[in-house]
Design a protein around this nucleic acid. Structure first.
Lengths: 309, 309
DNA sequence: TTGTATGCGTTATCAG
DNA sequence: CTGATAACGCATACAA
């Protein structure tokens, strides 16, 4: 690959002039400018990004750490993020992690001059204290200053409203394990019920961890009756369908299921379920703004769209 | 972030000595070694990767370009690749592309000193001529010297054997559009039939492009009878189930479906279909070897495992 | 308007 | 065994 010296030699100007022409051509004689451009063409010269990074102080790379638990999940953000960041000439450095330790290791490995910033996506585990240049997307218990999280209370409430307005009043909830997010979900769930004067039945609330299947089995076994079910994501929805199928409960005829995070709508899915979805492009935009710093600081909470099945 | 100068100052040695200690500590007095190590600890020093890249000639980054058509597909290789490459301190630079032009653009954008090598995954479109440092994985019509592709003929034959041994003799094929791969699939399909003396019926072979749904509709409408179906991937399988469901054909009771690429087994999938699967870890290993050059050159064709539903 | 010189952080060469 | 010093490729302040 040709470098700036080759170009300057061929164009009979100095490296500085070449550099000037290529980055904001201010104050260069048209003649030299053309010479440089011609040489660039001839040599098919492209500035070396590594050298640019070292000289400037920015690499143009952003580390993206995907939590693996809900991978099907996190992975769906990737195309939207990549598209958005590419527009701004930013590259994505990909890592996966399945624990807080994994995230820390990824961060320290990426944070050695390679990245200008980092994004953690979809972590369901407790996160360590993080640097200011780390943006958290869809992470539970986001401890950082920069985070984009979902309004789970609002989502749960909306889901209840939807199901109840479709004639389902006995609503079960397959919630996250104890934590801020679970409380938010529960809050929204109760608000949704209250609005329609549906009494709250704690037996209808179960925890998806360690296993959604077991939780649902326990729920069914308990004899508590329900004709609607709120789940936390599409994967859980599938599990639920599968379990309930085994119990001869037809979805959505006898039992309506709604997902509180409808990301990752699987192509050619057999039965499209209603869900609360979060717009991927908007999300990517916000993440970019947080990273480039054009945005006001502070965590951001976004509300999802109700999408009927 | 502390740099090598800070360390050398604190340890009262030169930069060179610091560098020596950190990379293969050959010929350094134990005393200085300890001093350096102490300083490194104290300052939490980690060598800047960008500077290392500029100085050495390798960035330790590998570009990964995922074809977007069968994204659900390509994206599934990512975790395995990342895991494998991370072991060798290689980072993954992620891009998506949906056309040959997109791939070219990605390659030229990544090929400016950022990457040592590149991988293209899952391209179903015609690929341009590519540099030697590009490895093609699961790409149709792989034109490069380095490629890992699947033995489609073998897969198709295996699929036929499986279905026929399960009492399905009228096998339809939802094939790729014209091309080398489609021919291979067709070859395997015919071989599988021949083995069991099942006559070949060309009406049972349809093309999945531009739309698997339409192709299947046409197939059903044609009146040709079939009780088994070979599809090219899980997404197509889902589409097929959906279409056939509409025609009141139950899967897998009346009709058995097998996928020739069972990657991306969806979690909690309702009905696990039989499929030919390609081992992701092996694949990632091979890709790594091709890139690090420890492997004999030339394209590699691998055969998939039959996994019953 | 242009060229020179210096810095970015590291590795490697070569004297000492 | 160690320390200066020259690359690596580019950007930029400064001088002309």
């Amino acid at each position: 690959m040709a470098n700036i010296n080759d170009v300057s030699r061929l164009a009979r100007v100095s490296k500085a002039t070449v550099s000037r022409v290529l980055s904001g051509n201010r104050g260069v004689r048209e003649e030299s400018r053309q010479a440089v451009l011609k040489a660039v063409q001839a040599l098919n010269y492209q500035p070396n990004l590594i050298a640019q990074s070292l000289s400037g102080q920015s690499t143009g790379c952003v580390g993206v750490i995907c939590a693996m638990e809900s991978m099907q999940h996190a992975v769906n953000y990737l195309p939207a993020l990549e598209k958005q960041f590419r527009r701004h000439n930013k590259h994505l450095l990909l890592r996966f992690a399945d624990s807080a330790a994994g995230v820390e290791s990824a961060i320290s490995s990426l944070g050695r001059g390679l990245c200008d910033a980092m994004i953690v996506i979809g972590a369901r585990f407790e996160l360590p204290k993080l640097d200011g240049s780390v943006v958290l997307i869809d992470c539970l218990n986001a401890p950082g200053a920069y985070s984009i999280s979902f309004d789970h209370a609002f989502a749960a409430e909306t889901a209840c409203q939807y199901l109840i307005s479709h004639g389902r009043r006995q609503l079960a909830l397959l919630n996250y394990p104890d934590g801020e997010t679970a409380e938010n979900v529960l809050h929204g769930y109760r608000r949704g019920l209250e609005y329609h004067l549906v009494p709250y039945n704690r037996r209808l609330v179960v925890c998806r961890d360690p296993s959604p299947r077991v939780a649902l089995q326990a729920l069914v076994n308990s004899g508590a009756r329900f004709n609607g079910l709120l789940v936390m994501n599409q994967a859980d929805a599938r599990e639920a369908i599968s379990v309930l199928h085994a119990y001869r409960r037809a979805v959505p005829d006898q039992l309506a299921i709604i997902s509180l995070d409808g990301a990752a709508p699987l192509p050619g899915s057999l039965l499209p379920l209603p869900a609360i979805e979060y717009p991927l492009e908007k999300l990517a935009e916000q993440a970019l703004e947080m990273i480039t710093g054009h945005s006001g600081t502070g965590p951001l909470v976004i509300r999802g769209d109700l999408v009927a099945g």
